[in-house]
Nucleic acid binder design. Structure first.
Lengths: 340, 340
DNA sequence: TCGATTTCAGAAATCGTTTTCTAAATCGTA
DNA sequence: TACGATTTAGAAAACGATTTCTGAAATCGA
């Protein structure tokens, strides 16, 4: 039934040690004859070493854990692809879990990974902090934060320049003579990209000498909310001529709300989205959007994590680093102005 | 640094056995006094048992492996959510991997899971067969196939009734006097849902006494292909007045191709999609679509897998079963006819 | 009070690997 | 021929938990 190294050893007429050495290409002092016998036995029995036993002995599982805060969002699927590709290349397996922006679940996930002796963790934190992250330090397990910064913890963090992202969008709108820009966002709640995007909005307005209107900063939590706020916005005497969305899911709600109110995009109001998705170009009208290098983020996280794993193996200290990637803008028709 | 059961035992002044018994709430014959001491030590040392050691000894990892063929597709994210929810409830952890419709990767994934001694596997097979699936039987590891049927292997399989799905769509179109229905699909390549959807199309046409036109069955592999085939279709003398898509990604390409050709949906041509997504309702026009119970599929797979794991533990035989879930139709505006 | 039973808890074996230790066999050289 | 050095490969000790075995102490019944 379950084949162990002992079965192979018996079949090949050698000791367990010899089989192990052959398995791990530790051919140091092993005669060709025995080696062949072992190979033969392995093949005949379809032997696969038990990863638990191996990991237990070697104190190394060759597995990286990934905690994502929202698997539903296609943005993360692209990040994941980057993570997968580099891990595969480097011989690491992946264990992926979904915290769904829930602190308790996130804590469970971290603890589960610690117990499993994973070699390293990539975490997209659900909030700006979580007490369980302290354990990571205590356990000396290498880890990298992704996309969101965590307060009070000195750790490697891969992020995208959100200030820059938003300012690309604002500058684009201003260039099209759309200076009356409202912004929609989810409640910041200490989540760094949200905070930075609103900060970027304020900065970019200032840079363009546009006066900030508090009532054009709309914090919404769900579709209903979005719809309501949109009505308030559109029924005022002074209306914006552009809306900046700060999240790809939110963008869909914004477009729907506008459609319901009978507003035409981009003729009456322009819209800029955040994140490029499969469907961005299929929306009506095709969406101008700020794109974050998702795939590269995934790769960068793995790259840094592996550096850290190596450093730990070789007992060298590594200073915590924040790596900032560059966003860009894809111009389509949702802000008008372009001939396209 | 790394805290083991021995450290806890020492600190509490008891034996490893006692600590283990307390950890596993095996209070059978343990005095309150020692129990408290152990608890105290565990708390002070922030002890977490090593899952590898535990798994090795117990021959059980409390982990289920999931092999998905395409993580990019949002359909699978919903399936995954169902899987996650039930696993969480039942105390299983998840290990998720992405085979990307690649046989070699799929084989690697299966082998990796076997080595890790996972308690059970949920597999969305990339093709109709893969030799590595034989190993599953040999290793006596419980597993369930999801969404796609596998030939030559008697195994539990969770699917959706594709014949029914397509016929819902065809009947809907016929009800709106759209009897000239073309269908687009990816190359079947022995993948059961694709085969069944085309079969369902033929059946539904027959049931409605519509003659099948071979040149209205379009097999495409990518966006370019789709565009090309669409042109051929629209430049013919006899044109369809409805298009049935058999995949959610394909639907986007179809809509784009139609838009490019200047065709208006639904006035000139109706479109039915497959799978409900975040964006279906935001497309232009909002999409009428066949919806598969994704979340329920995930739950059903876990439910059956756990039955099988239990059966193995209790050494009872279980006959392979195919469970078929029911699709339904969401009617929006992409086929016209509705007042909405 | 004595032997039998029950209650408690530690010692030791086990899971399947890797790795260190040890020893036999072979070889080269004096 | 003898002896140390080098190959070669098995025996045994980890890794960190669980679980079986074992034995001492406490309790019970007569």
């Amino acid at each position: 039934m379950r084949v162990t190294i002992e079965d192979v050893a018996k079949k090949a007429g050698v000791s367990k040690s010899t089989v192990s050495r052959v398995m791990n290409q530790n051919y140091h002092h092993i005669t060709e004859e025995k080696r062949q016998k072992v190979f033969q036995a392995i093949r005949e029995l379809d032997y696969r070493p038990n990863a638990l036993a191996k990991g237990l002995k070697q104190m190394k599982t060759s597995t990286i854990g990934v905690i994502l805060s929202n698997l539903q969002n296609p943005f993360w699927m692209k990040v994941l692809e980057g993570i997968e590709d580099l891990c595969q290349e480097e011989g690491y397996s992946l264990m992926i879990v979904n915290s769904r922006d829930n602190l308790a679940r996130e804590e469970e996930n971290v603890k589960g990974f610690l117990m499993r002796q994973l070699d390293g963790l990539i975490i997209n934190p659900s909030l700006g902090q979580n007490p369980v992250f302290q354990s990571l330090e205590a356990y000396h397990v290498p880890y990298v934060f992704l996309n969101r910064k965590v307060q009070d913890i000195q750790a490697d963090t891969i992020v995208v320049d959100n200030i820059k992202g938003v300012s690309l969008a604002v500058d684009h709108l201003v260039g099209l003579e759309r200076r009356r820009i409202a912004v929609f966002l989810y409640p910041p709640e200490g989540i760094s990209p949200r905070l930075e995007r609103i900060e970027g909005y304020l900065k970019a307005l200032r840079a363009n000498r546009i006066e900030v209107r508090e009532d054009w900063i709309k914090i919404v939590t769900n579709r209903e909310d979005c719809r309501r706020e949109m009505q308030v916005l559109l029924e005022a005497q002074e209306r914006p001529n552009a809306i900046l969305s700060t999240n790809n899911m939110l963008t869909l709600d914004i477009l729907e709300s506008l459609k319901e109110s009978g507003y035409r995009v981009p003729e009456q109001i322009g819209v800029v989205g955040y994140d490029e998705t499969e469907w961005s170009k299929h929306l009506d009208p095709p969406l101008t959007t700020i794109v974050q290098p998702a795939y590269e983020m995934g790769k960068a996280a793995v790259k840094r994590l592996i550096e850290r794993i190596r450093a730990k193996e070789q007992k060298v200290q590594l200073a915590a680093e924040t790596m900032e990637l560059e966003p860009s803008l894809i111009v389509r028709r949702s802000c008008g102005g372009l001939g396209d």
